[in-house]
Design a protein around this nucleic acid. Structure first.
Lengths: 229, 229
DNA sequence: CAATTGGTGTAAAGATTTTGTCAAGATCGC
DNA sequence: GCGATCTTGACAAAATCTTTACACCAATTG
């Protein structure tokens, strides 16, 4: 098998000893390895290296591990296996709820680690969605939070970006008012569809050539909105 | 939410105490539960009950847990979470290699179990390609709420879509006026069959090639309507 | 055979609801 | 305090719903 087809593993850990250990353990097993020693480098590497699996330590110097998981999950479904010394249940629950796929407490057995990596790979043989969404003149790069229209960068407010990200990750499907409100504003805003309309209007003014005749954000009357793909 | 849409969990464990415990823990969390007390019953239940997750004890009286995993994996990809007292690494590796998705050693925390169940559900719900209804030139994609006729997208009002969705989910069967009225408008409209006719007419104008000679929405005089399939 | 009757289909006119836009406060972070 | 953002209110615009009116068809009946 050529090196390009090997499963790609990204290790995000600040301890050199752990990275060396994982390297030793995994390098003999037909994996293509990449390493990052802090959260920001890890996020960048995930975008460039496009790993099939991420092994993530929670105790990073620059970013909290949970935050790393959250940011990854904004644009990627890559399996994340957390390796941590924290064995308290709350840490496990927080990591899994944030989007991690598995949680191993150090010290762990090499065999178990390999078995869990294999299990994760087995599951994720499905196709990975491309993190850059392109539709006509609209381009959304989820890894960089960058939105361009006809090549020009547009600046979105946090709320506008959240809405657009949600639509991109569900492109083509109808998102009900309730789904968007719950995801972006939280469950308390379910009965406030007005803020959503204002934001959709603002969003359209920024990304539609003719906001009164939208081609990207289509309204499905009585139901919600849909992003054409 | 109706009981039909709840995530379905199958518990395979021979110890009544464990089943009771899991039942108590999970029944309050919006799951639909099913239980089996040995391997053969578990395999049979998996086929009939079609769970979204299986919680499996390794120490069953009739079949080894590993064997249960193997037999399940011959035909199903349902996520399997192993719950076991065996904490030796070899047991974990064997279970995971046989096709289990996760392995929890008893005793485990309730929060962690729930978090791992959620993680497994999250993964498996990602791509469930819901069937698209196709009949001649009509195509109804219920997940995208997209209706096309000869490839052209048609826009339906909420009421029209409700009617069509109802007919698609009961394609081929006759739906009485009462059934449609009750389902779409609510029980109060049972005595207002006229709104239904108006909407059927509008619907036909949108999806029938020749609305005066409908080929999709067939009227069954004196009874109701039927969608050909 | 013509008229009637009950069930059905179509068109159009308000009435109602939903959606879009603008702009004025309110809030938040720096 | 200032600028950006968010929220809210008022109103306009658009879409949808309901109702009314009437045409059509087939079976029945006088």
């Amino acid at each position: 098998m050529s090196a390009e087809n090997l499963p790609r593993i990204l290790i995000i850990d600040d301890e050199l000893a752990i990275r060396r250990f994982l390297h030793t353990v995994l390098s003999g097993k037909d994996f293509s390895l990449h390493e990052a020693e802090n959260g920001h480098a890890g996020l960048a590497a995930a975008a460039v290296f496009k790993p099939d699996i991420i092994l993530l330590d929670l105790g990073l110097p620059d970013l909290d591990g949970i935050e790393v998981i959250r940011r990854l999950r904004e644009w990627s479904l890559v399996p994340i296996i957390v390796l941590s010394v924290r064995e308290h249940e709350n840490d496990k629950v927080a990591a899994l709820d944030a989007g991690a796929d598995d949680y191993l407490t150090k010290p762990f057995g090499v065999g178990e680690l390999l078995a869990r990596i294999k299990a994760a790979l087995r599951r994720s043989l499905q196709d990975v969605p491309e993190p850059v969404f392109i539709s006509h003149d609209l381009q959304v790069d989820l890894t960089r939070r960058l939105v361009t229209i006809r090549g020009d960068e547009v600046s979105l407010t946090p709320t506008e970006y959240d809405i657009l990200r949600l639509m991109v990750t569900h492109a083509g499907k109808v998102l009900t008012h309730g789904q968007i409100l719950k995801q972006v504003w939280g469950i308390a805003y379910l009965e406030q569809p007005h803020v959503l309309r204002v934001n959709i209007s603002n969003l359209r003014r920024k990304i539609e050539a003719d906001p009164s005749r939208p081609r990207h954000i289509i309204t499905e009357p009585g139901v919600g909105y849909r992003l054409t793909c």
